[in-house]
């Protein structure tokens, strides 16, 4: 149980995907025009990530090493088609907003990264916890980024106008450059926060995690 919690909680802060692993940036930049879009995208990724992690972990011993990537992608693609059909059925407006980025979850680095780095080496319950943690971290990050951009770019949050009267929306934020500026600013803020926190705690400065962090370290 403790190990499951450990795998789950690392996705929420220590390895939160867009800010720490810097993976899955294409949807992070493209669909976060509003908090709702970011949240919907995150939910789709949670669904795909948890199921594909569980599936891959379940069959990890029977997949030949040489063809594993193809198998991983085939399994992730199956999940993505499922989530796409579900979204068309139940949340059609959101599906129209996200557009091409739903099918593109297949090639999202996070899915393949977690499959290769974690699910292919760990038992099912750990893989599920890892997928859920990373997925929720991704959703939080996307919702936060989308909320920030929506707040300043359109003056609203989840579609409700919240800014005071006389506020002129800063349209740059909902354009493409705003996504890069926002993400860059948040990355800088995260690094700054980490440095300050580790200095205060008397710990060493953390080294930036390579793709998928220490769980895929070759020496382990």
């Amino acid at each position: 149980m403790a190990s499951m919690w450990k795998e789950f909680s690392k996705g929420l802060w220590a390895e939160i995907p867009p800010f720490r692993l810097v993976l899955g940036l294409c949807p992070t930049l493209a669909v976060t025009k509003s908090a709702e879009n970011g949240f919907g995208m995150g939910m789709a990724v949670i669904f795909v990530l948890v199921l594909s992690n569980v599936l891959i972990s379940a069959v990890r011993k029977i997949i030949p090493k040489k063809v594993r990537i193809v198998c991983f992608i085939a399994m992730a693609a199956t999940m993505v088609v499922a989530v796409e059909l579900l979204m068309q059925a139940f949340t059609y407006p959101l599906y129209q907003q996200l557009g091409i980025f739903v099918p593109l979850i297949v090639v999202n680095c996070i899915i393949l990264g977690r499959a290769e780095a974690f699910a292919a080496k760990n038992p099912i319950h750990l893989a599920a916890a890892d997928g859920l943690g990373i997925g929720i971290g991704y959703t939080l990050a996307l919702t936060f980024l989308g909320g920030l951009r929506e707040l300043f770019g359109a003056g609203s949050l989840f579609g409700h106008y919240v800014m005071p009267e006389g506020f002129v929306p800063f349209a740059l934020m909902v354009e493409a450059p705003g996504a890069f500026i926002c993400l860059g600013g948040l990355l800088a803020l995260m690094n700054c926060l980490t440095i300050v926190m580790s200095r205060r705690g008397g710990r060493e400065l953390p080294v930036n995690a390579p793709c998928g962090a220490d769980c895929c370290d070759a020496n382990k």
């Binding site: 800063f170 740059l172 450059p177």
Partner: peptide, 9 residues
Amino acid sequence: SMTVAWPTY
């Protein structure tokens, strides 16, 4: 940035 953000102003 200003031209993209607030073209009318």
